[in-house]
Amino acid sequence: MDEDVEEMDRDRLVAEVLALRAAIRTHRDSSGHDLCWHHPDLWSLLPEQVEPAIAVPPWPQFLRGCVAYRQSLERQAPGAPTHAAEYDA
Protein backbone atom coordinates (compact mmCIF):
# COMPACT_ATOMS: atom_id res chain seq x y z
CA MET A 1 0.00 0.00 0.00
CA ASP A 2 2.87 2.39 0.72
CA GLU A 3 5.27 1.23 -1.98
CA ASP A 4 5.23 4.73 -3.47
CA VAL A 5 7.32 5.97 -0.53
CA GLU A 6 10.21 3.73 -1.52
CA GLU A 7 10.29 5.34 -4.96
CA MET A 8 10.31 8.96 -3.75
CA ASP A 9 13.47 11.00 -3.93
CA ARG A 10 14.63 13.00 -0.93
CA ASP A 11 12.88 16.23 -1.97
CA ARG A 12 9.57 14.44 -2.49
CA LEU A 13 9.92 12.65 0.88
CA VAL A 14 10.62 15.95 2.65
CA ALA A 15 7.57 17.51 0.98
CA GLU A 16 5.45 14.51 2.03
CA VAL A 17 6.62 14.72 5.64
CA LEU A 18 5.94 18.46 5.78
CA ALA A 19 2.43 18.02 4.34
CA LEU A 20 1.63 15.23 6.79
CA ARG A 21 2.95 17.22 9.74
CA ALA A 22 0.91 20.26 8.74
CA ALA A 23 -2.25 18.15 8.48
CA ILE A 24 -1.60 16.45 11.82
CA ARG A 25 -1.05 19.84 13.46
CA THR A 26 -4.29 21.16 11.99
CA HIS A 27 -6.13 18.15 13.38
CA ARG A 28 -4.33 18.39 16.74
CA ASP A 29 -5.10 22.09 17.06
CA SER A 30 -8.82 21.63 16.47
CA SER A 31 -10.85 22.99 19.32
CA GLY A 32 -14.40 23.76 20.26
CA HIS A 33 -16.99 22.44 17.85
CA ASP A 34 -14.31 21.50 15.30
CA LEU A 35 -13.48 18.50 17.51
CA CYS A 36 -16.76 16.89 16.47
CA TRP A 37 -16.07 16.56 12.76
CA HIS A 38 -14.37 13.97 10.63
CA HIS A 39 -11.40 15.28 8.67
CA PRO A 40 -11.47 14.28 4.99
CA ASP A 41 -8.71 16.80 4.20
CA LEU A 42 -6.42 14.77 6.49
CA TRP A 43 -7.46 11.52 4.79
CA SER A 44 -6.85 13.07 1.35
CA LEU A 45 -3.11 13.01 2.05
CA LEU A 46 -3.08 9.23 1.74
CA PRO A 47 -2.03 7.96 -1.68
CA GLU A 48 -5.12 5.76 -2.05
CA GLN A 49 -7.96 8.10 -2.92
CA VAL A 50 -11.09 6.30 -1.82
CA GLU A 51 -14.43 7.61 -0.71
CA PRO A 52 -14.63 6.67 2.98
CA ALA A 53 -17.51 4.28 3.60
CA ILE A 54 -18.76 5.90 6.77
CA ALA A 55 -21.80 4.65 8.62
CA VAL A 56 -23.78 7.12 10.67
CA PRO A 57 -25.35 5.80 13.88
CA PRO A 58 -28.97 6.55 14.66
CA TRP A 59 -29.43 9.71 16.74
CA PRO A 60 -29.71 8.12 20.19
CA GLN A 61 -26.51 6.09 19.74
CA PHE A 62 -24.78 9.03 18.09
CA LEU A 63 -25.59 11.35 20.97
CA ARG A 64 -24.45 8.76 23.52
CA GLY A 65 -21.16 8.62 21.62
CA CYS A 66 -20.88 12.42 21.78
CA VAL A 67 -21.46 12.31 25.52
CA ALA A 68 -18.87 9.54 25.93
CA TYR A 69 -16.37 11.55 23.87
CA ARG A 70 -16.94 14.64 26.00
CA GLN A 71 -16.53 12.56 29.16
CA SER A 72 -13.24 11.17 27.82
CA LEU A 73 -12.02 14.74 27.26
CA GLU A 74 -12.91 15.50 30.87
CA ARG A 75 -10.67 12.62 31.98
CA GLN A 76 -7.85 13.18 29.48
CA ALA A 77 -7.74 16.99 29.61
CA PRO A 78 -9.35 17.98 32.91
CA GLY A 79 -7.76 21.44 32.92
CA ALA A 80 -8.81 22.38 29.38
CA PRO A 81 -10.74 25.63 29.19
CA THR A 82 -14.35 25.36 28.10
CA HIS A 83 -15.57 26.74 24.79
CA ALA A 84 -19.05 28.11 25.44
CA ALA A 85 -19.84 29.33 21.91
CA GLU A 86 -22.89 27.86 20.23
CA TYR A 87 -22.37 25.90 17.05
CA ASP A 88 -22.89 28.13 14.01
CA ALA A 89 -23.55 26.06 10.90
Results as ranks from 00 to 15, higher is better:
A89N: 07
E48D: 05
R64N: 12
E7K: 15
D11I: 03
E74W: 13
A80F: 09
L46R: 09
V17Q: 06
P40R: 03
L46C: 08
W43K: 10
C66S: 08
V67F: 06
M1E: 08
L63R: 12
R70Q: 15
G32L: 00
R10C: 09
A80L: 14
R25E: 12
F62L: 15
R64Y: 08
D2E: 10
T82D: 12
Y69V: 09
P78R: 01
A15V: 04
P52R: 03
F62S: 09
P60H: 02
E86A: 15
L18Q: 12
H33E: 01
R21V: 08
P52W: 06
A84D: 05
E86V: 07
V56K: 11
D11W: 04
L18F: 09
D4P: 00
S30P: 00
E3L: 09
A22V: 01
A53G: 05
D41H: 12
S72F: 04
W37A: 11
A68K: 13
E6Q: 13
M8I: 03
A15P: 01
M1H: 06
V50Q: 08
S30W: 01
A68T: 09
H83M: 06
A80S: 13
L18S: 09
S44Y: 05
S31T: 14
C36I: 06
G65W: 01
L45N: 02
L46F: 15
I24Q: 08
E16C: 01
Q76P: 00
F62G: 08
H27C: 07
H38S: 15
P52N: 07
Y69D: 11
H39Y: 13
L13N: 04
A53P: 00
H83T: 05
V50H: 12
C66I: 11
L35Q: 04
W37S: 12
G32N: 05
G65M: 02
P58L: 13
Y69A: 14
E51K: 14
C66K: 13
I54A: 11
A53L: 07
R64F: 04
S72K: 15
R10S: 10
E6K: 15
A84G: 03
A89V: 06
A15C: 03
E86M: 11
H39V: 15
A15Y: 05
G79N: 14
L42G: 00
E86H: 08
E7V: 05
E74L: 08
S31V: 10
E74N: 09
H39G: 03
L35V: 02
I24R: 02
D41Y: 12
D88I: 02
R75Q: 10
E16Q: 06
V14I: 15
T26G: 03
H33T: 02
H38M: 13
I54D: 08
R21Q: 09
Y87I: 04
R10I: 11
E51C: 05
P58W: 10
R25T: 07
L46I: 09
R12D: 11
P52Q: 08
E6S: 13
I54G: 03
